[in-house]
Simulated assay, not measured.
Amino acid sequence: MSPNELIGRGGAGRGQGRKPISDDARPYKLLLPAELRAKLDELGGAEWLRSQLSLAVYLDEINLESAMNLATRYINAMRQLPQYFSNLDSRGPLTHVMTGVRVLPLGDLSDPEDHGGVLEVVYPGGHRVEVNGHALYQMALAEGVRWEIDSNVDDIPPRKRDVYQARIADLDEHLRRKHSLI
């Protein structure tokens, strides 16, 4: 008889300890200074890091070249708007040039009969929200038109400019002169 059996305590039991996150999971050592370690802990530690890596893998796998559902068609339409012109890869999700927000299609991407039109908005940091594709498209369209008009304010006669457009023109002229952009 072992000493553990004499005092009524069992040895190592089945099912004890940390459960594996997958069959092929392996530890990865990461050295971080204290301030980065504190930030990682604040963001959610290993679980947050795994979610960020999973998102990166997912974004790499998305290919919209042969996608046909309504959500993808919204993405392709918004790709024509100025706030998304920075996207050099026309196969993947959209990235808003000013905010870094990514827009992804959901549903069965290869089914032209999938009329759900649901999009996923992914914020920097990983927060994800599912949104109505038509509503987001309408907001993006309004934003894009405003950018388009205001970026071509020189095409608007000075007497027809609104206060906002007049200020853009004045500030543009000032900055061009000050920084030799003319």
Rank of each mutant, 00 (worst) to 15 (best):
S2I: 05
S2K: 10
L6T: 07
G8A: 09
G11A: 14
G15F: 05
G15V: 05
G15C: 09
Q16H: 14
Q16I: 14
K19P: 04
K19N: 08
I21G: 04
I21T: 14
S22H: 11
A25E: 15
Y28F: 15
K29R: 10
K29C: 05
L30K: 04
L31G: 10
A34P: 02
L36G: 05
K39N: 10
L40S: 05
D41H: 13
E42R: 10
E42G: 03
L43T: 04
G45C: 10
E47N: 14
W48G: 08
W48N: 09
L49G: 02
S51P: 03
L53Q: 07
S54W: 03
A56M: 12
D60T: 06
N63L: 07
N63C: 08
A67F: 00
M68I: 04
N69L: 06
N69K: 02
R73V: 10
Y74V: 01
N76A: 10
N76R: 12
A77I: 07
M78A: 02
L81C: 03
L81R: 02
Q83W: 04
Y84N: 06
Y84F: 15
F85R: 11
F85V: 09
N87V: 06
L88R: 09
G92I: 01
L94T: 00
T95R: 07
L106F: 03
L109D: 00
S110T: 12
S110E: 11
D111R: 04
P112K: 11
P112T: 11
D114A: 12
D114S: 06
D114Y: 05
E120A: 10
G125M: 01
G126H: 03
G126P: 04
H127P: 03
H127L: 15
V131S: 01
V131G: 01
N132V: 06
L136N: 00
M139A: 12
M139V: 07
W147H: 14
I149N: 07
D155M: 12
P157A: 08
R159D: 14
K160Q: 12
R161H: 01
A166T: 13
D170A: 15
L171D: 14
E173Q: 12
R176Q: 15
R177I: 06
K178W: 08
H179N: 11
H179Q: 03
